[in-house]
């Protein structure tokens, strides 16, 4: 990447170090304001076992409704959270750019968008050596 930035140009603006830092890059005006509220970063988003399990399940089968995510968490992982709680977890993942929703027909489906995870490897690349 010629335009290297530790947060990546794609996510500049909402993966900010500080809430008070001014937004730079492609997000301007109302769009930047929209992202400035309730924004979280990928590290906080991943710091929760339920949210990691949601990503596991979406990685295994992408494009699930809230109902399917809830039933999978309950039956495969024994998690009996309320739908509202799971909905809030999905919101945190979406704010961090790890999940996107798409309306198909009259239902809303959730998709795993792993691109922000590449930032971790870019920031702390694995050393290219064989372990002894």
């Amino acid at each position: 990447m010629s335009e290297y930035s530790p947060w990546g140009s794609q996510f500049r603006g909402f993966l900010r170090l500080s809430r008070d830092e001014p937004v730079s890059g492609p997000l301007i005006g109302k769009q930047a304001l929209a992202y400035s509220a309730g924004v979280s970063d990928i590290y906080r988003a991943l710091d929760d076992e339920t949210r990691r399990l949601v990503l596991d399940e979406l990685a295994a089968r992408d494009g699930q409704t809230l109902f399917e995510i809830c039933s999978t968490l309950a039956t495969r992982h024994g998690l009996t959270l309320t739908r509202q709680a799971i909905s809030q977890h999905l919101g945190v993942l979406e704010d961090a750019g790890l999940l996107r929703t798409e309306r198909r027909g009259r239902s809303k489906f959730h998709y795993f968008t792993p691109a922000p995870l590449a930032e971790i490897a870019r920031r702390w690349p694995l050393p290219e050596r064989t372990t002894p």
Binding site: E68, G105, R106, S107
Partner: peptide, 17 residues
């Protein structure tokens, strides 16, 4: 279908419009 056949342990389910 909004949910294809899914194994929920003691049963299989699916959801359609």
């Amino acid at each position: 279908f909004t949910q294809p056949p899914t194994d929920i342990g003691n049963a299989w389910i699916a959801v359609f419009d």
